[in-house]
Amino acid sequence: MAFPAPEHEIHRRRFSRNLGVGLTLVCFVALVFALTVVKVTNGDLGHANDAPGMLGSTVPIAPELPAPAPATGAVSP
């Protein structure tokens, strides 16, 4: 049977600091999540992904150019 570990004095002394850091981290995670939702729903995935072919890019991949016509030997005027 496991007994709860006795609370160390430092935990009581640093409670306000630990609580503050914990809440700050939770808020930061929530903010990053909200920012991600906004960016994804608005299609604004940012400059880093905005290259043709990149996942989530808003720039279409350029269609392949048609192959050049074979040379006929005719001299153009």
Binding site: R13, R14, S16, R17, L19, G20, V21
Partner: peptide, 9 residues
């Protein structure tokens, strides 16, 4: 003296 969260703020 122990610094609280407010001291870091």
């Amino acid at each position: 003296k122990e610094a609280g969260f407010g001291d870091f703020v």
